[in-house]
Amino acid sequence: MKTTEWRQDSEYVALVSDLLAMPEVQKLADYTQHHHSNRLDHSISVSYNSYLIAKKHGLNTRATARAGLLHDLFYYDWRTTKFNLGSHAFIHPRVALRNAEKLTELTPMEKDIILKHMWGATSALPKYRESFIVSLVDDYEAINEFFGPAQLKFRRWRRISLKQRILNQLEK
């Protein structure tokens, strides 16, 4: 996430500042997430954008922001680490939940958000609207992070290409 808009949102910061101060959460910056982002930036993006949606709809912003931040609290490269018990999509929410429970007390809603944020890739149906929000925002952010640099390159290419075509027409 390139934007630091969340830093100016004092209401959001108040909900997550204790978690962001923890070395265990800061350590997420050491792990690549979707090729062009690190896991901490990804988690903040999911957390903040989910929080904004929850706030707009009068839902539980605290649970959404905090669980959104902790939804990928695991310390391995998911592209190279494999498990005998199932896929990364199935395993990592359980690992993240276990790690989050070591850091802070979690409400049942926060547990559901973390555990079911891979809904769609897994069959674990979210119990709360907040869980659906984090799951959908996580998908959106993953796609945006993965394809974002390619989109920028395409836009630059298109702009340059358009300028070149205009110049070619003017030269005729």
Rank of each mutant, 00 (worst) to 15 (best):
K116F: 05
K111M: 12
H88E: 14
F90E: 11
R98T: 15
F90S: 10
T107Y: 14
R98S: 15
V95G: 03
H92G: 07
A121S: 11
H117E: 09
A124L: 13
P108W: 05
E101S: 12
K102A: 15
H88W: 14
M118I: 09
T104N: 11
K111D: 06
F90M: 14
M118H: 09
L125I: 15
I114G: 01
F90L: 12
I114N: 12
K111C: 09
H117W: 07
K102Y: 09
V95A: 03
L103K: 01
S87L: 09
L97K: 01
P93I: 06
N99W: 00
V95D: 01
K116R: 11
H92Y: 09
E101A: 09
A124S: 14
T104P: 08
R94P: 04
R94W: 04
I91L: 08
E110A: 06
M109D: 03
I113C: 01
E101I: 00
I91E: 02
M118E: 11
L106V: 10
M118V: 10
W119M: 10
E105L: 08
P108E: 07
A121G: 10
F90K: 15
G86Q: 02
G86A: 05
H88K: 13
E101F: 07
A96K: 05
S87P: 04
G86M: 02
L97S: 00
L115G: 05
I91P: 01
H88S: 15
A89E: 13
H88C: 11
I91T: 00
H92M: 03
